[in-house]
């Protein structure tokens, strides 16, 4: 299922057909007042599950459960319908689900789709120009040159800076560029800072969709260290520079929260500073070059941390 097309999905578990029909009629009534389309799917795929007394045995861990209650008067007559929520309660339930995780999931679906398109665009470099627009801002992309320019006014720049500064998934769409729009473009800039911030923003939606959690990240160029705390970013970069690691291994070795490592990995991967390889790939192994006059050999391996600490103290810097 493409979650970008279905804003919210719901299902039933242990609910009689007559009750389901009643509920679906109510959902149709309220659907016009909801911020996006709702779709009935099987229980296992639903984000919102209406259930009878017994909880469903197999359910998505983040699905929201809504237990139906029996009409007290119905207890007197066998086979009576379970009472569905009142229509206003139903509206609250759906609206609440839109405002929570499922809404975020929809935005993440759009973000993942956009990031994948951008990644492909700049990796293949086949398209001469494209327009990226949304959230009231637009910019022109030049994939063959790995550049972009702000379309129109400085307002665009401020708007996008705010979007990426807040590290929230932007609602941006990619489309072909018209000749008139190309005439209006300004000075070009390297695409890397933009991709970097987009990668950081994507951390809310996890790792880039084409990267596996067990994939090993290998640094191929020193990255930007923008948008994250300088100390954490520096630790992540130097740790990954020392040897390839998975994102969890990187977070562990750099002593930072995994979300920080995911943000760093996304940004560095999008810019091409880091590549992801399968754990079985020979490139996943640490580099073999170890020159004889490496500093650890000269300065005494065991004493090195103490020496570095003493230097930091003398310089007045803290790691």
């Amino acid at each position: 299922m493409d979650i970008t097309e279905h804003a919210l999905t719901y299902g039933f578990h242990g609910v009689a057909e007559a009750e389901q029909a009643l509920l679906q009629g109510m959902i149709r009534r309220i659907s016009r007042r909801l911020p996006g389309p709702v779709t009935h799917v099987s229980t296992h795929h639903a984000q919102l599950v209406f259930l009878d007394d017994a909880a469903p045995p197999l359910i998505g861990s983040d699905a929201r459960l809504v237990r139906l209650v029996r009409n007290p008067e119905g207890r007197q007559s066998p086979g009576a319908l379970r009472m569905p929520p009142h229509v206003t309660e139903l509206l609250d339930i759906f609206s609440g689900s839109f405002g929570g995780g499922s809404h975020e999931r929809v935005r993440c679906g759009a973000m993942q789709s956009l990031v994948r398109s951008l990644h492909d665009l700049f990796r293949t470099r086949d398209t001469p120009q494209a327009l990226l627009e949304g959230d009231g801002a637009s910019l022109i992309l030049y994939p063959s040159d790995r550049q972009f320019s702000w379309a129109g006014t400085q307002h665009n720049k401020q708007l996008l800076s705010e979007i990426f500064g807040a590290q929230r998934p932007p609602r941006l769409d990619l489309r072909a560029l018209g000749a008139q729009e190309l005439d209006a473009c300004g000075e070009r800039h390297g695409i890397e800072p933009l991709l970097w911030h987009m990668g950081l923003a994507h951390a809310h939606c996890g790792l880039l969709p084409w990267v596996g959690r067990d994939d090993v990240l290998r640094m191929r160029a020193w990255p930007y260290l923008a948008g994250q705390g300088p100390a954490a970013a520096m630790r992540l970069a130097t740790t990954l520079r020392a040897r390839p690691r998975s994102v969890a291994g990187l977070a562990d070795a750099a002593c930072v929260p995994e979300t920080d490592a995911v943000a760093f990995a996304n940004a560095a991967l999008l810019c091409g500073f880091v590549v992801a390889v399968a754990p079985t790939d020979p490139l996943a192994l640490p580099g073999g070059r170890k020159p004889e006059d490496a500093p650890m050999k000269v300065s005494g391996f065991a004493r090195l941390p103490g020496i570095l600490g003493a230097i930091r103290d003398a310089l007045g810097v803290r790691s």
Binding site: R241, A242, L304, P305, I311
Partner: peptide
């Protein structure tokens, strides 16, 4: 210098 020291430290680790 701090970047240099952190790199050396990471390689040592």
């Amino acid at each position: 210098l701090e970047v240099l020291l952190q790199q050396i430290e990471a390689m040592w680790a």
